[in-house]
Simulated assay, not measured.
Amino acid sequence: MDDATASDTVVNAASALFYGRGVQAVGMDEVRSAAGISLKRMYSLFPSKETLLMAVLRERNATWTSGILASAETATTPRDKLLAIYDFLAGWFNQDDFRGCAFINSFGELGAVAPTVAAAAREHKESFQAYVADLVEQAGGPASLAPQLAILAEGAQTTAAISGTPDAAAHARAAAAVLIAAALPE
């Protein structure tokens, strides 16, 4: 197995374990076992657990971004692209392995003691907020609408994870539709 394949295998194994049980609850030996490679090889690819976590968060960010963009591609108007965010969330919340936002979870566990984790979480959230701001601008809405819509999405993620039901996506979408209608009168 070449380094790129081995790296992907380790990141995928760590992602599933960290997301399912938490970063601190999972040891590197458990990741190694799930990935099916030697501990020496894994440490040659990822010298520390934090390095591995950062690779996992990069992969999670790429998955999130591609999912959000794909959802928006199905919408035809800027207003519908904004609402597509919540449709994406509904699909995500309905997945059997949904455990909330990996960035919020990682920040909650390690943000106070691992500056790189805190920075990755902030960067991920800022990127999403910039994406929403761009959609709001395309729709001709006021800049103040973007953080309101982003907060609805963030709150829906946390609520869905804690409640264990996907209902928060529909509630956030309904609230977003009201905000959009008020900000973008037809």
Rank of each mutant, 00 (worst) to 15 (best):
L69D: 08
Y86G: 01
W92N: 08
L82N: 00
I85N: 04
F88L: 11
S106W: 09
Q95T: 15
G91Q: 12
D80Q: 13
E73H: 13
T74G: 13
L89A: 15
D97Q: 12
L83W: 01
E73G: 12
L83N: 03
T77R: 03
G100P: 04
N105T: 12
I85E: 02
L89S: 09
D80R: 11
Q95D: 13
W92K: 15
A90Q: 13
A72C: 09
F93L: 02
K81R: 15
G108D: 11
P78S: 00
I85G: 01
G91W: 10
A84H: 06
F98T: 09
F93R: 08
P78M: 01
G100K: 10
A90D: 14
P78Q: 00
T77E: 05
A75E: 07
E73D: 15
I68Y: 05
G91A: 12
G108E: 10
N94S: 15
D87I: 12
F103Y: 11
K81Q: 03
R79A: 06
S106K: 00
T76Y: 06
T76E: 14
N105D: 10
F103N: 04
R79H: 03
T74W: 11
D87M: 09
L69E: 13
Q95V: 14
L89G: 03
L83V: 07
T74F: 11
L82G: 00
S71N: 05
A90T: 12
I85Y: 02
A72Y: 02
F98I: 13
A72N: 03
R99Y: 09
D96P: 12
S71R: 08
F103A: 00
A90H: 14
C101M: 06
F93S: 01
T77F: 00
T77M: 01
L82I: 01
L89K: 10
A70F: 03
A84G: 08
A84Q: 07
G91F: 12
F88V: 12
D87G: 15
D87A: 14
Y86I: 02
L83F: 02
C101N: 05
A70I: 08
Q95P: 03
F103D: 00
Y86E: 01
L83I: 05
I68P: 00
Q95R: 13
A72G: 04
